[in-house]
Simulated scan of single mutants.
Amino acid sequence: MKVRKVFNNSVVLGVDERGTELVLLGRGIGFQTSAGADVDTSLIEKTFVPGGSTTAERLAAFVDEIPLEDIEVTEEILKAARATLGTHITDHVLVPLADHVSFALRRAREGAAEIEYPLRWEIQYLYPAEVAFSRDALRIIEQHRGVRLPDLEAVPLALHFVNAQFGAPDLTVTLRMTEVLTETLGIIRAEYGIEIDEDSVPVARFVTHLRYLFLREQQGKKLKGVGDELKEVLRAARPREYDCGGRVAALLNQRFGWEVTADEVLYLALHVARLTDDATSTTEERP
């Protein structure tokens, strides 16, 4: 492996035999070396691969500003996250998450006021698995770094784990998705005049379906294979729900420019039906 660029004594940009650029972190790895020299691989402590829109220079700048101990605790968090949330939590999350953890730790040590995160309530009920794990992550941080971050920090941590599903370079897409998910439930509330239990199984399934719909659209994939007969049966049996599914599809088109297929509308309508049936039955059971 060769040195392509030296950023400082601890961070260099290397290039391997296949021409892949790697950001290398290690105490003294950049000391008295220059472009074209062999990398002293014995000094490599961490290796980072640029991905998406993140350039090697930007990645190196992040790494240079984050204490190694904060990167190490973030690695522990990611290891636990993969075991709990799934293999979509890749190492591409490491640097942005470590940057956030390091910033939060610095603020906590300085006694800075808590940050009011937007959509905090929506995030907590739309992404319960990620929020629950993020509370575990706060305990991991406390164990390794001796600082107890505010419980509210579980909100932005959860967004990083949700964002990992979409492979987006920042949290913008996830925040926009959260806003649309909230608007979608608002459409259903307004249409049916019902209270929606955000902790219910139908809501969880509906939100999961919408998240995968977002993922399919991000990847340019479409649901296919639903017969026209089934669509007509649902349209005749549950016209209100079918229309509501169409309104959700129109919202997605308005916000993101997506052409949501008739198959997707069918599945949206089915989820609306399950959700409203559950809400109606819960209301009827109340004394």
Rank of each mutant, 00 (worst) to 15 (best):
K2W: 08
K5C: 01
F7M: 10
N9C: 05
N9K: 14
S10C: 07
V12C: 10
V12E: 08
V15F: 02
V15Y: 05
R18S: 14
R18H: 12
G26E: 06
R27E: 12
G28K: 11
G28Y: 10
F31Y: 13
F31G: 02
G36N: 05
T41D: 14
T54N: 02
T54E: 12
E57C: 00
R58V: 07
L59Y: 10
D64N: 13
D64A: 15
I66D: 05
I71N: 04
E72L: 14
T74F: 06
E75Q: 12
E75H: 02
E76T: 05
A80L: 10
A81C: 05
T87P: 00
H88A: 05
H88R: 08
L94N: 07
V95S: 02
F103V: 04
R107A: 14
I115V: 15
Y117W: 15
P118R: 15
R120L: 05
E122A: 15
P128D: 03
E130D: 13
E130N: 13
V131R: 07
R135N: 10
R135W: 12
H144N: 14
D151Q: 14
L152P: 00
P156C: 14
P156A: 15
L157S: 11
V162A: 15
N163T: 02
A164V: 12
Q165N: 10
G167K: 07
G167I: 06
A168I: 00
A168L: 03
L171Q: 07
V173G: 06
E183L: 10
L185Y: 04
G186Q: 04
R189C: 02
I194N: 03
V201E: 15
T208C: 06
L213K: 00
Q219L: 15
K221M: 14
K222Y: 11
L223M: 15
L223H: 11
G227Q: 02
G227L: 01
E232H: 00
R238N: 00
R238Y: 11
G245Y: 07
A249K: 07
V260P: 00
E264W: 01
Y267S: 02
A269H: 06
L270M: 13
A273C: 07
T276W: 10
T282C: 01
T282N: 08
E284S: 12
P287S: 11
